[in-house]
Amino acid sequence: MTTKILHNRQGFLFEMIRNGRLYAMFMPVAVYFLIFAYLPMTGIVVAFKDFNYQGGIWGSPWNGWDNFRYFIESGKLVQVTINTLLYNTLFLVAYLFFSILVAILISEMGSRLAKKTFQTMLFLPYFISWVTVSALVYNLFNYEYGLMNTLVKGWGMEAVDIYADPNLWPVILPFFYVWKWVGFGSVLFLASIAGQDKECHEAASIDGANIFYRIRRITLPQLKPTIIILLLLGVGRIMRGEFDMFYQLVGTNGNLIDATDIIDTLVFRSLVSTQDFGMSSAAGLYQSILCFVIILAVNGIVRRQDKSQALF
């Protein structure tokens, strides 16, 4: 019997015996995710329950799709879904583009001191929380005494009220997103460039290829796996937003809501005084399912191009 399993080279047991050590090395992480991620995942049922304290998660009565109703009846579901999708796509593309640009430019810099200094500087925004950024932005841009408008008025021009113009925000928000995260993102690409084989570059250089040509033909293609993995990871979060950024920078500003409303801000506004677990779970589930569908599609496309690059 045992020999039969052992001889069956496709078998589960055979694999376990052959690579047992490797699987054992995976165990700590596996156990962690089982406990801290899969176990609580059963709580998805809360989205379909009328939660009460005595019944808890399992004992509370079911209420079908009732928790989703506010979401659908708000009449804004389509709009916020599209907004979320567009903003996050914009963020992801801008983030990747600037991270790569910064990483390549820094890695080509001659001076080590400059490399270090610039990188540290680019990292600073990561530490400023959105609440503080919001106060900063308000102080820079507000109509009455903002630094920018003081200057603009000084030049004899009309002051700008950015908080009244919905068209500006699709630019302002990605700007701050990149501002906050580019230091973070470029680190990965720097590491990836550092891991690249230098010989290729040298050979090409001797052949007379200039640096721009080498970046296009050697550096960038080698960054492709990193780009794809970041893309896939980003797509997996595409329906969740930087809630804090939207909430703090924009505020609940009626004039900007149509242009800046994402799923998370809609849910926050609707539930701010409700304290209802079921309703917030329902929104979370909606986001999860959309993310799931989108990632399956994107991963499928990647898989067709290059199987080894796909996430799963």
Partner: peptide
Amino acid sequence: NPGKVKNELASIANVISQYMDPISIGA
């Protein structure tokens, strides 16, 4: 007791902040 109309209350909270607040500050 908001239990029976919690969905409606959520929508109303949303409407108030989007459409009432601008009126109330005059914007």
